[in-house]
Lab assay of single mutants.
Amino acid sequence: MASQGTKRSYEQMETDGERQNATEIRASVGKMIDGIGRFYIQMCTELKLSDYEGRLIQNSLTIERMVLSAFDERRNKYLEEHPSAGKDPKKTGGPIYKRVDRKWMRELVLYDKEEIRRIWRQANNGDDATAGLTHMMIWHSNLNDTTYQRTRALVRTGMDPRMCSLMQGSTLPRRSGAAGAAVKGVGTMVMELIRMIKRGINDRNFWRGENGRKTRSAYERMCNILKGKFQTAAQRAMMDQVRESRNPGNAEIEDLIFLARSALILRGSVAHKSCLPACVYGPAVASGYDFEKEGYSLVGIDPFKLLQNSQVYSLIRPNENPAHKSQLVWMACNSAAFEDLRVLSFIRGTKVSPRGKLSTRGVQIASNENMDAMESSTLELRSRYWAIRTRSGGNTNQQRASAGQISVQPAFSVQRNLPFDKPTIMAAFTGNTEGRTSDMRAEIIRMMEGAKPEEMSFQGRGVFELSDERAANPIVPSFDMSNEGSYFFGDNAEEYDN
């Protein structure tokens, strides 16, 4: 993207840094990872977990959730003011799984939030270390993106479920800051804005008074975040219109849905970061690795190297396929839920299948599930090659597409044709070009129609051997075009429920 120079890199967003050079960025990201790792080690000690239990991804998720809940100030305040039966607002906890007599047992633990905050700050040299908290939120978000298709949420806001490739980060909490905003897809931002506008339509006082002023500035800020994701002048001009509207209503909703559809071809720039579970960072720190000293990046080879040398386990339900569970977590670790499966298959070195073909449910185990038949197995999170994460949407291309997802959002900077089903997408653009945004709409449609099938995206960008740390010898991959490109292809993934 041309304006790259004016933006802070995501590592800076990730670490609240002012302008830093590459070495400083690597050190501050490393410091953040160190903090998460030290916190995780301490929690495993508190909970008396064995090494194996500490490497269980379900335990990692519970521990991450506990610290996120302990620092969720708004919710904590709300819980104190609106006490609900049987919930102690000062405590947080969740299921911890232990191996007892050759069987997995679930144990519900409860801790004072104050105590968890103390352990977290102690692991982070006394700081609140917001960057580390956001990092864990993005890992949870990436896992949700890989596990669930947001059909219901899309339909509720009037969008087409086939636009799911635009929904990265749709389950990120509001408090995820600049680093969170960077990884949100165009569809996620559109959905947040539509929800806001709908509230304004239904509630006369939404934009009024002292609160209304705050609401208005939040609305304009979200519009600017979305505008910054678009790469064409016409899309940005249309966002200006939406932002400046005196009284946002149905016309703005129409414009936003139009823009979301246009992003299936004229893709937005959305950041991709490899955020790993805390149970990967903990053992690495415990083994003596100093992330701050060595430096770390979320968008280069580092996460690949770390996963190459990590042992992570997962509980497996009786009829689940461990290899499929591994694929789910591998995609989440690489922030690749909406990437082209052919690119992923090449990088991973084994075939990556669409969601609907995987015999696996989510990673988390519900409290009512029976533990008797639970097994555990090693997650295979290694890769054959590594590639640089991208934040450009890439230019655009036609490809055989599917009944489910009709476009992709690249996660890796790797040369390819970008699949999208042009006739299906263009069919949504018939007729409606009147109104105050008509010239911009016409211009956007013209650009979409001009998108050429034979153009290559990320020209000359390749993948790298894991021994090639400096990215000196790019390998331009070859793809098996007979395979499906979309992950949520004609899909039956479970729906995400809060």
Rank of each mutant, 00 (worst) to 15 (best):
T430R: 00
G249K: 05
G187R: 06
G30S: 12
M66R: 02
Q122H: 14
T433H: 14
I96Q: 10
C223S: 13
D340F: 11
T430C: 12
E339A: 08
I365K: 08
S478T: 06
A411I: 07
R195I: 08
Q364I: 15
A401M: 08
L133W: 12
T130Q: 01
K229A: 08
E80Q: 00
F464L: 06
E375L: 00
T62S: 14
G462S: 03
H272Q: 13
G177D: 10
R342I: 04
Q42L: 06
E465S: 10
G435L: 11
L315T: 13
W104G: 08
R355T: 01
E380Q: 02
P83M: 06
G187W: 05
V67H: 10
I41C: 00
S84A: 15
K113E: 06
T171R: 10
A278H: 09
T215R: 01
I445C: 12
I475H: 07
A182T: 13
G212K: 08
M440C: 15
A251F: 13
D72N: 14
V312C: 00
T134L: 07
R106Q: 04
D16S: 02
R243K: 15
S457C: 02
G490V: 09
S314L: 14
Q4I: 02
W139T: 10
V242F: 02
E192M: 10
V183K: 09
E469T: 02
P453M: 07
M426L: 06
E339I: 12
A286Y: 05
Q311D: 09
L307R: 13
I265Q: 08
T151E: 10
E115R: 03
G177V: 04
L259D: 10
N473C: 04
E469R: 03
S392M: 08
S353K: 09
N202H: 00
Y496C: 08
V155H: 04
K7P: 11
A472K: 09
D34G: 02
V329A: 06
R204W: 15
Y148V: 08
L68S: 02
A278Y: 06
F71I: 12
R106V: 13
M1G: 10
L49F: 09
M105L: 01
G490A: 08
M13F: 10
I119M: 01
G404T: 00
Q4M: 01
K357Q: 08
R8P: 02
A2W: 10
